[in-house]
Nucleic acid binder design. Sequence first.
DNA 1: CCCTATTATGCTCAATGAGAGTATAAATGA
DNA 2: TCATTTATACTCTCATTGAGCATAATAGGG
Lengths: 295, 295
Amino acid sequence: MNEIQSELVAVLIAVQDEVPLVLTLDQGRNLPSGPLETRHRSLQRGMRLWVEQQTQCRLGHIEQLYTFAETAGLETGVQDHPRLIRISYMGLTRLEEAQQGWRGLYEYFPWENRREHGADPLLSEIARALTVWAKGDAARLWRCAETFGLDGQPWSDELVLHRYELLWEAGLLPESQQPGSWLAPGRSMPSDRRRILATALARLRAKIRYRPVVFELMPETFTLWQLQRTVEAIAGSPLHKQNFRRLILAQDLVEETGKAEMQAQGRPARLYRFKGTVIGTRHLMGSKLPIARSV
Amino acid sequence: MNEIQSELVAVLIAVQDEVPLVLTLDQGRNLPSGPLETRHRSLQRGMRLWVEQQTQCRLGHIEQLYTFAETAGLETGVQDHPRLIRISYMGLTRLEEAQQGWRGLYEYFPWENRREHGADPLLSEIARALTVWAKGDAARLWRCAETFGLDGQPWSDELVLHRYELLWEAGLLPESQQPGSWLAPGRSMPSDRRRILATALARLRAKIRYRPVVFELMPETFTLWQLQRTVEAIAGSPLHKQNFRRLILAQDLVEETGKAEMQAQGRPARLYRFKGTVIGTRHLMGSKLPIARSV
DNA sequence: CCCTATTATGCTCAATGAGAGTATAAATGA
DNA sequence: TCATTTATACTCTCATTGAGCATAATAGGG
């Protein structure tokens, strides 16, 4: 009865040199998307083949994110049937060398990267702008505090999407409906695209806690320190080194290769390998990471 | 470029008398579905209005589940473009009195209800049938054990979808492609529908652990025991009474009404009220429940 | 009115796990 | 040889959790 168009949108994520990357198009203003002309059993399978054909990336973990509808009447003001359905997916991959189109994920969400900053002047600026927007409304102030970890509230790394939507509503983004005078720094995208990106990061951060998906982003062999740096890159916050090791080793997720990696300085680190690729039940395995639910 | 049809599918869930219910159509063989002819901003909003109009239920928490594509050529064998997209949603509601069309959720998944059974003869039967199917293949046996908690593996209540898919693959369901001689008990549905149902239960079980969505299923005031019974109904497993109380009270999620409920026997129980409905940030609140991740 | 059955509520104890720090090991280069 | 650097091992404390025991408040029967 309802004839509409449909489209797949892909958020492809890799981590290189401790920096999370995402594949973009159009000078970083867009995400890869294509028609769902799949001759395959499932959307997921079609998605995988399409991506692997377009890019040269082998996709590891794939996950459907969200389905949006776009009404045609958005511009004209006449709200109508939806005309376009966008089904978004996240895919994880390894990136051997630098490639075209990959951009730092945190360029789009600078406030989500809390690895080095101490007091974080950016967060203070955002807090100030949000306070202005809240205009003393208690419910709004409460929401800002909960979302951005203000006023003694803990910072929760999984609230990526909530934070993006709050900034959008508050008019602090270039793509907001009524952008204010002060805008949060960071590379912009059309709002629905950056929203998908935020959804992907939120889902990845949530998933990495209890499923061994980090390993999809790692090379064949790796040191525990490299593994930790990758987790930190995704989680956006630093972890306690000794506890990280303890937890990983206790879970029997990795095995030693017997080799070690020599770097410029210090004691050589042992190289490990993920055990789950051998066993066929990756998606069933659990995995715990010492990421504090809140700081 | 690709003109296709689209459809919303709703999984509406309520709990009545400690039994989780789902709204069905067609003698319990189908789920409510309708065209996405929404004049509204988002799919979610359109979904809510459509459901509240069709049924008389006020929806609490709403969540998008998954989007499937159905290729037209499935019957003819000619794999083709997808012709129909199904966007599925889960909605939680309260049910005052018994109403038409609501059926016990565990009628569809008897093996997921582990509240009373001790040794569980059903699980043994399933285990036997799965072993036959596995034919000694180590990977298959391993997957069965992980998924159904066999051979000393822990039972994980969130693997609802994995279990359904395994049973389907193993030909133990009436809707399987090649149904075997022994079929698991339980009410059937066309495979894609029961799959959506399984997705909903899995998501609900996962969500109930860390977001206060149970309260969407509760009446205005309730005793802690009623709350626990509702959680148990969803989780499918019994909980430790004293620890449940401790955890709920420690989280400041509920407040006393000052009243108490008299029942036939025993000490009267205090009535509580959820505090989150007052504060507007329900979706941000956390909540912990003493559901063991594995038993 | 006392006693028992029944349910709600309060409390204790041990085991576990997480956060954080200290100590030791194995490399490099001066 | 020694300082430096990074990896790895161990310890200690505190919070959380699982489990059980104890007490409180009701109803009903002698």
